[in-house]
Nucleic acid binder design. Structure first.
Lengths: 232, 232
DNA sequence: GGGGCGCTGTCATCAACTTGTCATCCAAGC
DNA sequence: GCTTGGATGACAAGTTGATGACAGCGCCCC
């Protein structure tokens, strides 16, 4: 399991160091910057799993960074946690409406912030925080590497496992073969697109074994998706 | 766009009524129960989009309900917002670690809670965040590549999908066949103008299936438009 | 070192579905 | 009624996905 990557945008150097220590201890990779513009750059390049954003930073305001992160396609889906000293409700709401996923009010303890990050990751990339993925009657345990369908064990090869895992992390979503190759095989794999078909077939065969409804939907000329309604 | 469904587990009747009023006004469907066991049942059957759970309820404790919701495959992915009177950090962390997605500390305003629910839904059902197009009773989800009319799924071929998408992106507007060819087939397609007619027909057939009103208006000697009054 | 054995990637083939075009029929406007 | 433009049904070609088979690897157990 890859370490979750966190981008911290904060100009209080003491706080950065404190958090840096705690996050590293909890097996996160943490990158930090005090500058809004740099934050935007880093967010695009480093593709963090979550951004922690101080509301009040030098240069561009936190809320502006938030808005711009949401506007860029590459970063539009990164969860954002706002750090704010203001406890007023209006601000909290404004933060959430701007597209922040959560906020934490200063003062806070590192432990609380880490729990928050964990909660956010559990939603967005469940594999990073939890050990358990589920969709419909499919369960995947990342620790024991076991998969069950309707309570019964399912035998999967490594590739099928990763493929299913990726689907479980983004249920319902359609992925093109290219995207699946990137996500499951790695960004620079030199593999035939059509090979994806074959693995989809193997995954289907394994997981739908015994008259079960197909959970993988083929979207013609678009790709595949995990979907309990299957091939309708 | 279907209304988001909220399950409220709360034993303070006055609060239930207050929230009920506000959520309904904001176009949510809200179901409420004061009982933990019943909550688990409802969560499995009604498949709500989000559960709001009071930490302190009669019978099973809120935290126990939370844990059990997470354990059941059918409900493992439902976001949970905890309501708690305790502001102490330890409790907040325990709530988040148990699997709650967020918590709100009493007292809170309905508006804040609704903003929270909105933030959570935006993460979990990206469909609600704007990856979705709608017009009249037609919904199109770009992420899952699904189209619904009046809640029921509609099966479309790739071209019909793109065609409908284009209409949904510019509802009411009339497009000549030339413009539709440019927009849907690509700028340099060498396709007969009349072919557009055929695809319009196919789209109509699929989306108006079963005695539904025609949503595509033919404008003689001009083109076609998406229009709920259809062919008037 | 030498079999099995399971996992992978690729292909050729088959099947299903899409799609562009036509000829024909129909409706609206004049 | 005639003309023009749109709707329809049929169809053949073209795409795209599903499948089964197969050879290459790497690994484990002899």
């Amino acid at each position: 399991m890859t370490k979750p990557r966190v981008l911290l945008v904060e100009d209080d150097q003491a706080l950065v160091e404190l958090l840096s220590f705690h996050f590293r201890r909890e097996e996160f990779e943490l990158e930090a910057t005090a500058d809004g513009e740099e934050a935007l750059l880093l967010a695009r390049e480093a593709a963090p799993d979550v951004v922690i954003l101080d509301w009040m930073i030098e240069g561009v305001s936190g809320i502006e960074v938030c808005r711009r992160l949401r506007r860029l396609p590459e970063t539009a889906n990164v969860p954002i946690i706002m750090l704010t000293a203001r406890a007023e409700e209006a601000d909290r709401i404004r933060g959430l409406e701007t597209g922040a996923d959560d906020y934490v009010t200063k003062p806070f303890s590192p432990r609380e912030l880490i729990a928050r990050v964990g909660a956010v990751l559990r939603r967005v990339r469940p594999a990073l925080a939890g050990e358990q993925l589920a969709y419909d009657d499919i369960e995947m345990d990342l620790v024991s590497h076991k998969v069950k369908r309707g309570g019964a064990g399912v035998q999967l090869g490594p590739t099928e496992f990763r493929l299913l895992r990726h689907f479980l992390e983004h249920p319902g979503r359609v992925f093109s073969r290219e995207r699946l190759l990137d996500a499951v095989w790695g960004q620079d794999s030199e593999i035939e697109l059509r090979t994806v078909d074959v693995h989809i077939r193997r995954l289907r065969k394994a997981i739908n074994a015994g008259e079960r409804a197909d959970v993988i939907r083929t979207v013609r000329s678009a790709g595949y998706a995990l979907d309990s309604e299957g091939t309708v």
